[in-house]
């Protein structure tokens, strides 16, 4: 529903396209938590919304220099091949931007459907809930930090795993 704004300068009702667009477009909030970004998807996504989230998230990773992204899909009841692809894309893009992605809270029925559909979700790390996801992110970032320190020095034999 478009909102009508009274423009006090011209004394007319202002229905500028910008306001119109923001009123029409839904957005999924991206929250910054320390060096992580937290995305909680509370509604069933349609294609445009998912694509916007993908773009916004990458921008936010750059802007906030986040080291990890946590996506909570516990309220999502449907993940089809398109949504699955978007999640995979986000994980791969974040990887290139030096951030880890963890998807948490997948519903059992969604997991069953995804496997039967044949969606691999490769390269996407998962955790059962937000708490465990955060823990995993911290561990991963710690581990990556160690790895880079080790590769700077010459003795990398024990950390070659």
């Amino acid at each position: 529903m478009p909102f009508l704004f009274w423009n006090w300068k011209s004394g007319k009702r202002d229905l500028s396209t910008k306001i119109f667009n923001t009123a029409k477009m839904e957005k999924i909030p991206i929250l910054k938590m320390g060096q992580f970004l937290l995305v909680t998807i509370q509604i069933d996504l349609y294609d445009r919304l998912a694509l916007n989230l993908e773009a916004d998230l990458i921008q936010m990773v750059r802007k906030t220099e986040a080291k990890g992204v946590l996506i909570d899909i516990s309220a999502v009841t449907i993940v089809d091949s398109f949504m699955g692809r978007i999640i995979g894309n986000i994980a791969n893009m974040c990887k290139i931007m030096d951030a880890e992605t963890i998807v948490v809270g997948m519903q059992p029925a969604v997991a069953i459907t995804l496997v039967e559909l044949g969606l691999p979700l490769t390269g996407v790390h998962t955790a059962l809930n937000v708490e465990r996801g955060m823990e995993l992110l911290r561990k991963k970032i710690l581990f990556n930090g160690k790895e880079t320190v080790a590769s700077d020095t010459d003795y990398t034999l024990d950390s070659s795993e």
Binding site: T77, Q107, T113
Partner: peptide, 17 residues
């Protein structure tokens, strides 16, 4: 049931797309 529901809706979503 919930699992069958999810399967059906996912299938429907794919076909509509």
């Amino acid at each position: 049931g919930l699992v069958n529901q999810t399967k059906l809706i996912t299938a429907a979503s794919e076909l509509v797309r």
